[in-house]
Design a binder for these strands. Sequence first.
DNA 1: ACTATATTTAGCTATATAACTAAATGGAGC
DNA 2: GCTCCATTTAGTTATATAGCTAAATATAGT
Lengths: 116, 116
Amino acid sequence: MYYFIMYSTIQKFKALGDENRFRILMMLLQKPLCVCELLEVLDIKGGTLSAHLKLLKTAGLINQKKEGRWIVYSISSEKVKSFLTGIESELENKTIIQNDKTIIKDISRDICSSSN
Amino acid sequence: MYYFIMYSTIQKFKALGDENRFRILMMLLQKPLCVCELLEVLDIKGGTLSAHLKLLKTAGLINQKKEGRWIVYSISSEKVKSFLTGIESELENKTIIQNDKTIIKDISRDICSSSN
DNA sequence: ACTATATTTAGCTATATAACTAAATGGAGC
DNA sequence: GCTCCATTTAGTTATATAGCTAAATATAGT
């Protein structure tokens, strides 16, 4: 008799335990975003961001969808969404999260150039 | 103007994103336990366990209390407790967690020898 | 004093993680 | 076919993490 491990649960926590991925999730909580929009906010390169997004997707936290020339990411489910909303509501003021969101609010995916 | 980072939140997720620490938390959810009891269940050495416990404590997830010759650990607050209970209720059956708990149920801290 | 329980430290190993550059690949639209 | 947006791959670097051993330290009970 052996026992399975709760990998998927732990994998989700691991995914949440990184600053850039946490910021991505909080931004996606506001609205679905394409990769180039996320790149405008985060101080990382395109390849690095792709890796983070893949990890979040594998963990079951986000979804991917083609929209014309763009790939748009969003929170995977209502369940994850309400979980993250609860977390967000407990953050103290003046975290980088609030700053990210004000940037995201005024961003258009047409601004995006190849600053990869 | 700069923005604080939500370190403590991310630190909690990091703490949760490790199998041994996750198992420790789930066991403490059942009842407070001393170090030697945890050592009976986990396949790690005393020094390693101490490090995990310190990390969980720093993250604000558990508390420490002297009880005679033992140091007893417990979940830090009702808030953390209900959070973990929610997580636990969503685990599929037959994870190692259920196994840990049946061992913990019948353990006494007097059994503990210096298997450090 | 001595014992039991646990933590801490130093030193070590192995693996995982996060980032980069740069080039190649894929898919959609024009 | 070419361009745009994004992913993937290969190769590299640096740091973090998890584990070990073994010795030292701390604290409480007997």
